[in-house]
């Protein structure tokens, strides 16, 4: 099957924003995939494998990020990333991201 680029826009609903654990969760999913994933916000791009780049995007709660995946499992990896962004990490209320 030919590789294809798939894009999707997700809204960051976590009350802290796109924080360290979300970024690590994204990187873990992308590293397991066969696709290249880029997060895009306001024309700035971050590799989905690079937590520092993702944190530097600075995405507060309520803002959206565009995900661009390119590879044989592009659609599947974006499905998985949507779950990461949905962000139910089972945190106790006391915890910070």
């Amino acid at each position: 099957m030919a590789d294809s680029t798939v894009t999707r826009t997700v809204v960051v609903t976590d009350p802290v924003g796109l924080h360290a654990r979300t970024a690590v969760g994204i990187a873990e999913v992308v590293r397991r995939s066969q696709s290249t994933v880029t997060l895009i916000k306001d024309e700035r791009r971050a590799a989905g494998t690079d937590v520092l780049q993702m944190l530097a995007l600075y995405v507060p709660p309520g803002q959206s990020v565009r995900l661009e995946a390119d590879g044989p499992d592009a659609a599947a990896v974006l499905d998985a990333l949507e779950s990461v962004f949905a962000g139910d990490f089972g945190d106790p209320a006391q915890e910070i991201a």
């Binding site: 009350p15 802290v16 360290a20 944190l55 600075y58 507060p60 991201a97």
Partner: peptide, 22 residues
């Protein structure tokens, strides 16, 4: 270490650290 009611500062700090470390 952040006060519980200031998650925005935490995210800003992470962004600043990440930006410099790039």
């Amino acid at each position: 270490i952040s006060p519980p009611d200031r998650p925005g500062d935490h995210l800003r700090a992470l962004e600043y650290i990440a930006r410099q470390l790039r």
